[in-house]
């Protein structure tokens, strides 16, 4: 049975601690570039926390929003790829096939969320830092576009396990690295196809929105708006 994997991020819980960012680097073999390349904007944060300042001192406010690949149902990155490296799979994931990618950059240009990252160089790990690499995830080389996969390796592992036990994947069984690390339980992952899943129930919240909804990408990452109970506004 096909799933429709999705994520809900409750911005009223998110504290901007960035545990998700570090967890993602560790889980997905994301290379660090260095200071010089970071200055060129070549870091690869599959998930990063956007910070929006509002107002001026002293009535200033900062809002945080973790932004990752929104796994859009109508993904602008997919139709532009000349090699079909970027495509939509039956579980609704925006897949990125590294083997096919020839680095045209079209997908990154098309993505309104700047969620795609290009390997400008072959990544380098000073030994023995390479021993931290997760064998469940491939190491991407130069010229390849990469992005959040919703931790496909964890989804696959759960599906294989479920099949071995002759059952369906349970709600909450798959936790991408970011979701698992989140201290305030701001992130919830699950099957949007299953109306009883936690993620489906939260997606029906009054506070549910999507990022850049007007672009019409129909993301499967749903944000729950931060509550405003500001006494002195």
């Amino acid at each position: 049975m096909a799933h429709r994997w999705g994520m809900v991020i409750d911005l009223d819980r998110c504290t901007g601690c960035e545990a998700c960012v570090a967890a993602c680097h560790a889980e997905n073999n994301i290379a660090t570039v260095d200071a010089a390349q970071a200055a060129n904007g070549r870091t690869m944060h599959w998930i990063h926390v956007e910070r929006y300042w509002e107002g001026e001192f002293p009535n200033v406010r900062a809002r945080f929003q973790p932004v990752l690949c929104q796994q859009c149902d109508a993904a602008p990155c997919e139709p532009v790829c000349p090699t079909y490296a970027s495509y939509h799979n039956s579980d609704g994931l925006n897949a990125q096939v590294y083997n096919r990618c020839i680095g045209t950059f079209y997908c990154a240009d098309a993505c309104p969320y700047t969620a795609r990252y290009f390997n400008w160089f072959n990544p380098v790990w000073d030994k023995p830092l390479n021993l931290q690499l997760n064998p469940d995830v491939s190491v991407r080389g130069v010229g390849v576009m990469e992005k959040c996969t919703f931790c496909i390796q964890r989804i696959t592992a759960a599906e294989i396990q479920a099949k071995a036990e002759n059952r369906d994947v349970k709600d909450g069984e798959v936790k991408p690295a970011c979701v698992q690390s989140c201290p305030t339980a701001a992130m919830v992952f699950g099957d949007l196809e299953d109306p009883s899943s936690q993620v489906s129930r939260l997606a029906g919240s009054m506070r549910a929105t999507t990022l850049l909804a007007e672009v019409g990408t129909f993301p499967k990452v749903i944000y729950l708006e931060r509550e405003s109970s500001h006494a002195n506004e």
Partner: peptide
């Protein structure tokens, strides 16, 4: 069985 790319390539 699945012939989706993501079954094997990730």
């Amino acid at each position: 069985v699945s012939v989706d790319c993501m079954t094997c390539h990730y």
